[in-house]
Amino acid sequence: MRWLKVGALLVVVGFLLGAAAWMHPFGLPWASDMDDYFIANAQGEAAANNVVTSVVFDYRGFDTLGEATVLLCAVVGVALMLRRITR
């Protein structure tokens, strides 16, 4: 059983390392049209120096809304787990 686990993990690791080796070269992304638009227009449209902040809060605001919802759900879940039990 243990050797089965080791074999399966070695197969997965070989797949991951092969994928890492055959990907695009490090530092030369293939497609960057959207990011070039963000870098060129973030100062004019969002009036922010920090392009990442303008992407997070302006261009992709729905992602941040969902993220805030996930955080709220996690806090509610932790408060539900660790509540005081009164019988």
Partner: peptide
């Protein structure tokens, strides 16, 4: 590229939330 960094920010916060939930469990 700024978009992967913004998505990583989202991913880090969601990972933090799931870690807190796992530890509570």
């Amino acid at each position: 590229l700024p978009t992967p960094q913004a998505l990583t920010l989202t991913s880090i916060v969601i990972g933090l939330a799931t870690t807190a939930l796992m530890l509570a469990f």
